[in-house]
Computed example of a mutant assay.
Amino acid sequence: MNTPRRTTIYDVATEAGVAASTVSRTFGNPRRVNATTREHVLRVAERLGYRPNPLATALQSGHKATIAMLVPDITNPHFFGTIRGAERRASEAGVTFILGNTEESAANERNQIERLDHSVDGFVLAASRMSDETTVGI
């Protein structure tokens, strides 16, 4: 089965009559693009079904638009409201929400933080199992 090819910034640039760098800036740093050009590029991108690649955007802007929430036990009903509220706020802000279960372990919590550190903008630690000294600077 052939999957349709995703529309790229090069497709949008060709159709809009601008450079690929202009399309990139339109999505990654819109203040650096003339308002008229930006609106034109956005209209063309929408018509073509272009969706920015979040990883490419993160490389350019430094913002991943992703947060991670780590809880000690996702089956504990105490955390349901906190998880739901954090996910809702992230969604409203257009931020991807990652939920991690640390299994009541400070070592697991630290490992998840280390693995996700370069992939997220920040962490929400619900009832951290690490010491206060350990969490400073995370």
Results as ranks from 00 to 15, higher is better:
Ser131Cys: 03
Leu42Glu: 13
Asp73Ser: 00
Ser91Ala: 14
Ser61His: 07
Arg38Asn: 04
Val12Gln: 12
Arg110Asp: 01
Gly85Asp: 06
Ile74Cys: 03
Val18Cys: 09
Ala19Asn: 14
Gln60Phe: 10
Glu46Lys: 14
Phe27Thr: 06
Arg51Asp: 03
Asp117His: 15
Asn76Trp: 05
Asn53Leu: 09
Arg51Ser: 12
Leu55Ser: 13
Leu55Cys: 05
Asp73Val: 02
Ile67Thr: 03
Thr3Ala: 13
Asn2Pro: 13
Ala13Glu: 06
Glu133Phe: 00
Gly81Gln: 07
Arg89Ile: 07
Ala90Trp: 06
Arg88Lys: 13
Asn76Val: 04
Asp132Gln: 07
Ala65Thr: 07
Arg5Thr: 15
Asp121Thr: 00
Ile74Arg: 06
Ala93Asp: 09
Thr36Leu: 06
Arg6Leu: 14
Ser131Pro: 02
Tyr10Gln: 15
Thr14Ser: 11
Ala35His: 06
Asp132Trp: 04
Glu15Ile: 08
Ser21Ile: 09
Glu133Asp: 07
Asn2Gly: 12
Ala65Ile: 01
Ala86Lys: 03
Ile74Gln: 06
Ile113Glu: 06
Val33Tyr: 04
Val95Ile: 15
Val95Leu: 03
Val23Asp: 09
Thr26Ala: 14
Lys64Arg: 15
Asp121Met: 00
Asn2Ser: 15
Ser105Val: 00
Thr75Ala: 13
Ala126Lys: 01
Gly137Gln: 01
Val41Met: 08
Thr134Leu: 02
Val18Met: 10
Val23Cys: 08
Thr36Ser: 07
Glu87Thr: 04
Ala13His: 05
Asn53Met: 12
Pro77Met: 04
Arg32Ala: 12
Ser128Lys: 02
Val12Lys: 11
Asp11Val: 09
Glu46Leu: 02
Glu133Cys: 01
Asp11Leu: 08
Leu59Glu: 09
Val23Leu: 10
Ala19Thr: 08
Phe97Ile: 09
Ala90Gly: 10
Ala126Met: 05
Glu87Asp: 13
Thr26Ile: 10
Thr8Gln: 11
Ala16His: 04
Val18Leu: 10
His40Arg: 15
Gly122Asp: 00
Ala20Asn: 07
Thr135Val: 15
Val33Asp: 01
Asp121Ile: 01
Arg88Tyr: 11
Thr14Glu: 14
His78Arg: 11
Phe97Tyr: 14
Asn76Gly: 06
Val12Cys: 09
Leu125Gln: 01
Asp117Gln: 13
Phe80Leu: 13
Ala58Ile: 01
Tyr10Ile: 13
Asn2Met: 12
Thr22Asn: 08
Glu15Lys: 14
Ser119Ile: 10
Leu116Gln: 10
Glu46Thr: 13
Thr37Val: 12
Ile67Leu: 00
Val71Ser: 02
Phe27Leu: 09
Ile67Phe: 01
Arg32Cys: 03
Phe123Ser: 01
Met1Gly: 15
Ala126Asn: 03
Thr102Ser: 02
Ala68Leu: 05
Glu133Trp: 00
Gly28Ala: 15
Leu99Asp: 09
Ser61Thr: 15
Val44Gln: 12
Val18Tyr: 09
Leu55Tyr: 10
